[in-house]
């Protein structure tokens, strides 16, 4: 049984991130509440990764306000992230998981049971003693997912989780994401892949030039896009 969620909803209110004079995020407002996965879509440079890092609390906005469960400056105790290119610690598979469990404050006597549970969840049972850095790209991605889940998050951010994976590895990662979502964990994923957004998400947020152009339930976004940018993006036109 998970502890009550205290970090949702995550509200980004008129958030801007400036690098020099360049606005990576431009007065962007978005809310991530409980429920089906949210997919952040948009062309390169639209601000997806920056938004995920802001919502995770890894970087602070230049202006605007971010709250987690109505509070500011909440440490990421129930938030987790899977980076586009996750870094494996120089340890075995089980060593990576034990480290994440210890960092999450899981009691020592509960760690081994959690390790077995997480490895089964991501399909890496039997890989315990393998050096993490010698796993394939898909296996590393699944181990990073297991590591992110070690802290029993209320919300899981995924930054292009399958960007460099082949179709089989992509499917295995997507299966884990579905299983995670079915457990009641809020998933927010950045993706270029419209097919993946359709398969996984219940809500779509289209970003363009650092702004949230359109937010809609997945079905409506693809069938009845409300904005010109969304129509063009769904039709496969380039958004520059």
């Amino acid at each position: 049984m998970r502890a009550p969620d205290t970090e949702l909803p995550i509200v980004c209110d008129s958030v801007s991130v400036l690098v020099g004079k360049l606005a990576i995020l431009d007065r962007l407002s978005v809310t991530f509440g409980d429920g089906a996965p949210t997919a952040l879509i948009g062309p390169n440079g639209s601000g997806k990764t920056t938004l995920i890092r802001i919502a995770m609390g890894l970087i602070a906005p230049t202006s605007g306000r971010v709250t987690w469960g109505g509070r500011e400056a909440v440490p990421p105790l129930r938030r987790a992230i899977l980076f586009q290119r996750p870094v494996m610690l120089r340890r075995s598979v089980v060593g990576n998981l034990r480290y994440a469990l210890a960092a999450a404050g899981i009691a020592r006597d509960r760690r081994e049971a959690r390790v077995i549970e997480l490895l089964a969840l991501v399909g890496l049972a039997g890989f315990e003693d393998r050096p993490a850095r010698k796993l394939s790209g898909g296996e590393q991605q699944r181990l990073a997912l297991a590591r992110a889940l070690a802290r029993d998050p209320a919300v899981l951010f995924l930054d292009e989780p399958t960007a460099s994976l082949d179709p089989a590895a992509t499917k295995s990662v997507e299966d884990v994401i579905r299983a995670v979502s079915a457990r009641g964990i809020k998933v927010v994923t950045a993706t270029h892949d419209l097919g993946q957004a359709r398969r996984l998400a219940g809500e779509i947020v289209l970003l363009h030039r650092g702004r949230a152009i359109e937010t809609a339930p997945t079905e409506r976004f693809f069938m009845q896009p409300q904005t010109e940018e969304a129509r063009r993006f769904v039709a496969g036109d380039l958004l520059l």
Binding site: M56, L58, P76, V87, A100, A148
Partner: peptide, 11 residues
């Protein structure tokens, strides 16, 4: 190499 991961794990 580790900075982002350790920050995400609140180490």
């Amino acid at each position: 190499e580790y900075r982002d991961e350790l920050a995400a794990m609140n180490v």
